[in-house]
Each structure stands twice: as structure tokens, then as C-alpha cells.
């Protein structure tokens, strides 16, 4: 019997956002995430640690990318905002239960 061990490195792309993820910026974020997915990067981590405000348009950009990624076997996972205020919209809409979220990027990448 041959036993061969090895490791698989799953490619994960990280996108770090800073500032406000609102209606003004949602289009740019959607473009970046759409481009990554079109390029075959279906495992995405969006780092929201330094995002201080998220509105429903910003949330929509993340949700659309998550749904598109899951359609092709990938996912969009989030590093949670440090700001309680920015986290609030995920709790109000219960998307904190839909997205895989963690406080550290390493936790997300290790858990993939």
C-alpha cells in the first residue's frame, strides 16, 4: 500500500476596505469583486476591520459577490468590522449569520 501525503493550497484573494462602505462606494467595491470572480478567484476574503460605516448598498455589494461565488463553489468571507456601528447592519439584517465572519483574517484563511 502506498500512502502519499500532500497539501492543497486553496487560493484565497483578500480585499481590504477602509472608510465608508456606502452607496457612493458600493459600485467600486462591486466592480473589484466582480472582476475577481470573473478572473476565477472564487474564494474571497473581504477585510472590513477598518470600515466604520456600512449601508444597505454596501451590504448589497458583498451579498451579490457572496451569492455569485457560492454558485461556482467558492465563497466570500468577511473579517468583521472593528466598529460596532458598522457591524450593526449585519446584525439588523441577520447577515452576520449568513456570512462566515471572524475578527482575524488568519482565522478565516485557516478555516477554508
Amino acid at each position: 500500500m502506498d500512502i502519499v501525503t500532500g497539501s492543497l493550497e486553496i487560493p484565497v484573494m483578500t480585499v481590504v476596505l477602509r472608510g465608508r462602505l456606502d452607496a457612493l462606494e458600493a459600485g467600486s467595491v462591486r466592480e473589484v469583486l466582480d472582476a475577481a470572480l470573473a478572473d476565477g478567484q472564487s474564494n474571497l476574503v473581504v477585510d472590513l476591520r477598518d470600515v466604520g460605516f456600512v449601508d444597505s448598498a454596501g451590504l448589497a455589494a458583498l451579498v451579490k459577490a457572496m451569492k455569485d461565488a457560492r454558485l461556482v463553489g467558492g465563497d466570500v468571507k468577511l473579517v468583521a468590522p472593528r466598529s460596532e456601528e458598522a457591524m450593526r447592519i449585519f446584525e439588523l439584517t441577520r447577515f452576520d449569520q449568513v456570512f462566515t465572519m471572524a475578527d482575524e483574517i488568519e482565522t478565516i484563511v485557516e478555516g477554508w
Binding site: S56, A60, V63, M66, L92, T93
Partner: peptide
């Protein structure tokens, strides 16, 4: 009114206002 069990992309604005 978004379906809690079926995440959708849009339609959360009014839900957020009404919760706050």
C-alpha cells in the same frame, strides 16, 4: 420584505429603518 431564509441582494433599506 426580505425572506429571512433566502438572502437577497436588495430590499433591506426599509427593513433597517423600521427596526431602528
Amino acid at each position: 420584505t426580505p425572506d429571512e431564509n433566502r438572502p437577497q441582494v436588495r430590499g433591506y433599506g426599509m427593513m433597517i429603518i423600521e427596526q431602528i
